[in-house]
Amino acid sequence: MDSLAEGFKALADGNRLRLLNLLRCGELCVCDLMAALDMPQSTVSRHLSYLKKERWVSGRRCGKWMYYALSTPREPLLAKVLDLLRQELGGGETARRDEAKLRQRLESKPPDCCG
Protein backbone atom coordinates (compact mmCIF):
# COMPACT_ATOMS: atom_id res chain seq x y z
CA MET A 1 0.00 0.00 0.00
CA ASP A 2 2.78 2.46 0.81
CA SER A 3 4.30 2.08 -2.65
CA LEU A 4 0.92 2.73 -4.23
CA ALA A 5 0.37 5.82 -2.06
CA GLU A 6 3.81 7.19 -2.92
CA GLY A 7 3.14 6.64 -6.62
CA PHE A 8 -0.10 8.61 -6.42
CA LYS A 9 1.57 11.37 -4.38
CA ALA A 10 3.98 11.92 -7.24
CA LEU A 11 0.99 12.86 -9.41
CA ALA A 12 -0.39 15.34 -6.88
CA ASP A 13 1.39 18.31 -8.44
CA GLY A 14 0.37 20.20 -11.55
CA ASN A 15 3.95 20.75 -12.70
CA ARG A 16 4.69 17.03 -12.58
CA LEU A 17 1.55 16.34 -14.62
CA ARG A 18 2.69 18.94 -17.14
CA LEU A 19 6.05 17.15 -17.39
CA LEU A 20 4.37 13.78 -17.91
CA ASN A 21 2.20 15.32 -20.61
CA LEU A 22 5.22 16.59 -22.53
CA LEU A 23 7.03 13.28 -22.15
CA ARG A 24 4.15 11.59 -23.99
CA CYS A 25 5.91 12.99 -27.09
CA GLY A 26 8.97 10.81 -26.37
CA GLU A 27 12.35 11.28 -24.76
CA LEU A 28 13.26 14.91 -24.06
CA CYS A 29 16.22 16.81 -22.70
CA VAL A 30 15.79 18.83 -19.52
CA CYS A 31 16.57 21.99 -21.49
CA ASP A 32 13.60 21.30 -23.79
CA LEU A 33 11.31 20.80 -20.81
CA MET A 34 12.60 24.01 -19.21
CA ALA A 35 11.85 25.99 -22.36
CA ALA A 36 8.37 24.51 -22.83
CA LEU A 37 7.34 25.07 -19.21
CA ASP A 38 9.24 28.33 -18.73
CA MET A 39 10.74 27.02 -15.48
CA PRO A 40 14.28 27.07 -14.13
CA GLN A 41 16.45 23.97 -14.40
CA SER A 42 16.40 23.38 -10.64
CA THR A 43 12.59 23.24 -10.56
CA VAL A 44 12.30 20.95 -13.57
CA SER A 45 15.04 18.66 -12.27
CA ARG A 46 13.49 18.47 -8.80
CA HIS A 47 10.12 17.41 -10.23
CA LEU A 48 11.74 14.92 -12.61
CA SER A 49 13.73 13.46 -9.74
CA TYR A 50 10.52 12.89 -7.78
CA LEU A 51 8.87 11.26 -10.80
CA LYS A 52 11.95 9.11 -11.40
CA LYS A 53 12.03 7.94 -7.79
CA GLU A 54 8.49 6.63 -8.23
CA ARG A 55 9.32 5.22 -11.69
CA TRP A 56 6.94 7.40 -13.66
CA VAL A 57 9.95 8.44 -15.76
CA SER A 58 13.41 7.11 -16.52
CA GLY A 59 16.49 9.21 -17.15
CA ARG A 60 19.75 8.79 -18.99
CA ARG A 61 22.83 10.97 -19.19
CA CYS A 62 24.48 11.82 -22.49
CA GLY A 63 27.56 13.89 -21.77
CA LYS A 64 26.43 16.80 -19.64
CA TRP A 65 22.79 16.49 -20.73
CA MET A 66 19.99 14.54 -19.05
CA TYR A 67 17.19 13.00 -21.07
CA TYR A 68 13.92 11.71 -19.64
CA ALA A 69 11.16 9.46 -20.97
CA LEU A 70 8.01 7.91 -19.58
CA SER A 71 8.65 4.68 -17.72
CA THR A 72 6.51 1.91 -16.27
CA PRO A 73 5.67 2.28 -12.58
CA ARG A 74 6.35 -0.79 -10.43
CA GLU A 75 2.75 -1.16 -9.24
CA PRO A 76 0.38 -2.69 -11.85
CA LEU A 77 -2.39 -0.27 -10.89
CA LEU A 78 -0.07 2.70 -11.43
CA ALA A 79 0.90 1.31 -14.83
CA LYS A 80 -2.81 1.36 -15.74
CA VAL A 81 -3.04 4.94 -14.46
CA LEU A 82 -0.11 5.89 -16.71
CA ASP A 83 -1.93 4.41 -19.71
CA LEU A 84 -4.94 6.59 -18.88
CA LEU A 85 -2.73 9.64 -18.40
CA ARG A 86 -1.14 9.07 -21.80
CA GLN A 87 -4.60 9.19 -23.35
CA GLU A 88 -6.08 12.06 -21.37
CA LEU A 89 -3.39 14.55 -20.31
CA GLY A 90 -3.25 16.58 -23.51
CA GLY A 91 -6.84 17.77 -23.35
CA GLY A 92 -6.54 20.99 -21.37
CA GLU A 93 -5.53 24.51 -22.37
CA THR A 94 -2.32 24.41 -20.32
CA ALA A 95 -1.32 21.13 -21.95
CA ARG A 96 -1.94 22.48 -25.45
CA ARG A 97 0.05 25.63 -24.67
CA ASP A 98 2.95 23.57 -23.26
CA GLU A 99 2.93 21.30 -26.31
CA ALA A 100 2.97 24.30 -28.67
CA LYS A 101 5.93 25.80 -26.80
CA LEU A 102 7.73 22.45 -26.95
CA ARG A 103 7.15 22.17 -30.72
CA GLN A 104 8.46 25.71 -31.17
CA ARG A 105 11.51 24.90 -29.03
CA LEU A 106 12.31 21.72 -30.94
CA GLU A 107 11.94 23.48 -34.31
CA SER A 108 14.23 26.36 -33.34
CA LYS A 109 16.68 24.38 -31.18
CA PRO A 110 20.34 25.22 -31.83
CA PRO A 111 22.23 22.30 -33.39
CA ASP A 112 24.92 22.29 -30.70
CA CYS A 113 22.37 22.11 -27.89
CA CYS A 114 22.09 18.90 -25.85
CA GLY A 115 23.41 16.28 -27.97
Rank of each mutant, 00 (worst) to 15 (best):
M1D: 03
M1C: 09
S3F: 08
S3K: 11
S3C: 02
L4S: 06
L4E: 09
L4A: 03
L4Q: 03
A5F: 13
A5I: 15
G7F: 00
G7V: 02
G7W: 00
A12T: 07
A12F: 08
D13F: 12
D13G: 08
N15F: 04
N15H: 10
R16E: 14
N21F: 01
R24W: 02
R24D: 11
R24Q: 15
G26K: 01
E27D: 05
C29M: 03
V30P: 03
V30S: 12
C31S: 10
D32K: 09
L33Y: 01
L33V: 08
M34T: 01
M34C: 15
M34H: 06
M34F: 11
A35R: 08
A36N: 06
L37I: 10
M39K: 14
S42M: 13
S42Q: 14
T43S: 15
T43A: 15
H47Q: 11
H47G: 01
L48M: 09
S49D: 13
K53N: 08
R55E: 13
W56R: 03
S58Q: 14
R61S: 11
C62H: 13
G63F: 04
K64F: 10
W65V: 08
Y67L: 14
Y68C: 03
Y68L: 06
L70I: 13
L70E: 11
L70K: 06
T72H: 09
T72F: 01
P73L: 11
P73A: 04
R74E: 11
R74W: 01
R74K: 10
R74F: 10
L77D: 01
A79Q: 07
A79I: 00
A79H: 02
A79G: 10
L85I: 12
L85H: 05
R86P: 07
Q87W: 10
E88L: 14
E88C: 13
L89P: 02
G90Y: 09
G90N: 10
G90D: 12
G91W: 04
G92S: 15
E93I: 13
T94C: 09
T94P: 10
A95F: 04
R96Y: 07
R97M: 07
D98Q: 06
E99Q: 08
L102G: 09
Q104C: 02
Q104V: 05
R105E: 02
R105Y: 07
E107D: 12
S108M: 06
K109R: 11
K109F: 06
P110F: 02
P110L: 03
P111T: 03
P111V: 04
D112V: 05
D112L: 12
D112N: 15
C113A: 14
C113V: 08
